[in-house]
């Protein structure tokens, strides 16, 4: 039965052309991120922290884009660093943060949610209390305080971002999965498994969690977008990544450039981020349509 539903969802999704294109865009971004990680760009002589232009004259002046060399397509900032290369490097941070956050959030959220929903009682009370508490604090505020405190222990940078995001992003998944688990608890096949004497943890793992996977997929995608957007804001506020390039940092630098009519950096950061988030939004919609048509 599950297999059939998945097949139907797949059919529905693959007929949605926009969604397939969006998925393609996401795959390209992930590939670029992988290339950055593997040092591909360093190998071809482009690093986000070294200026491409060697001569000192170029320092202190922005260069607008030109197609003369691929590194200069989008021009350079005043340190002579290629904006295109920086925007590409930023993908790595965005995808890493999105991936880690979404994975951890979905894993933790599913496990806690399914356990709480299935067992009920004290465990349920505890889990509900935990996520209600976290959700009642405005999330940007919580993220900022968390990254401040975590920064003192892990040092500022991407690790701190992981810690802060993973600690907050799981609550949405957890709430939904718990609801679903409560519904499934009384389903026939679960009751049957219970009657057969299968131990409870196994029921949760084998029967409850797999049947909530459609929600987990949708939430994976949602958390991914949320994490990317939040990373940009935190980096913009200088609470985020430090060494790496990030769209947030680019936008922060670009604030001053606007008044001297230099739009390349903010344009690049915005466009790169826009495309990824747009693709994710379309993809999530299609996913939701295919897997969880009832939700609004």
């Amino acid at each position: 039965m599950r297999g059939l539903r998945k097949y139907r969802a797949y059919r529905k999704f693959s007929r949605d052309k926009m969604a397939v294109v969006a998925l393609g865009v996401i795959v390209v971004y992930v590939l670029v991120a992988a290339l950055v990680r593997l040092g591909f760009f360093e190998a071809v002589g482009a690093s986000h922290e070294r200026p491409i232009v060697a001569d000192k004259q170029a320092v202190a002046y922005y260069t607008p884009g030109s197609t003369q060399s691929w590194q200069h397509w989008l021009g350079t900032d005043r340190q002579g660093r290629s904006i295109l290369v920086r925007a590409l490097y930023s993908i790595n941070v965005a995808i890493s943060v999105g991936m880690v956050t979404a994975l951890v959030a979905v894993l933790v959220g599913t496990l806690l949610g399914a356990t709480a929903g299935y067992f009920g009682g004290r465990i349920d009370d505890l889990v509900v209390w935990l996520y209600s508490t976290i959700e009642s604090i405005p999330y940007l505020l919580l993220l900022m305080v968390l990254s401040y405190s975590a920064g003192l222990y892990f040092g500022k940078g991407i690790i701190t971002i992981y810690v802060a995001f993973c600690a907050t992003f799981w609550t949405g998944v957890c709430r939904v999965i718990r609801g679903e688990a409560i519904r499934l608890r009384d389903a026939e096949f679960v009751q049957a498994a219970k009657a057969l004497g299968i131990p409870a943890p196994l029921i949760v793992l084998r029967h409850i969690i797999p049947n909530t996977s459609h929600l987990a997929f949708v939430y994976f995608s949602l958390e991914f977008i949320g994490a990317i957007k939040s990373e940009v804001i935190l980096s913009f506020l200088n609470l985020g990544v430090q060494k790496e390039a990030s769209w947030g940092i680019m936008i922060e630098q670009a604030r001053a450039e606007l008044a001297v009519d230099f739009y390349w950096q903010i344009g690049a950061a915005t466009a790169f981020m826009f495309l990824l988030v747009l693709a994710f939004n379309i993809f999530t919609d299609a996913l939701q349509d295919a897997l969880d048509p009832k939700s609004v």
């Binding site: 005043r78 340190q79 200088n238 940092i249 922060e252 630098q253 001053a256």
Partner: peptide
């Protein structure tokens, strides 16, 4: 300290 163009200045120093 953060703020201003300290990040960029630090990047130049690093280089």
């Amino acid at each position: 300290s953060r703020g201003g163009n300290n990040r960029e200045q630090a990047e130049m120093f690093t280089r």
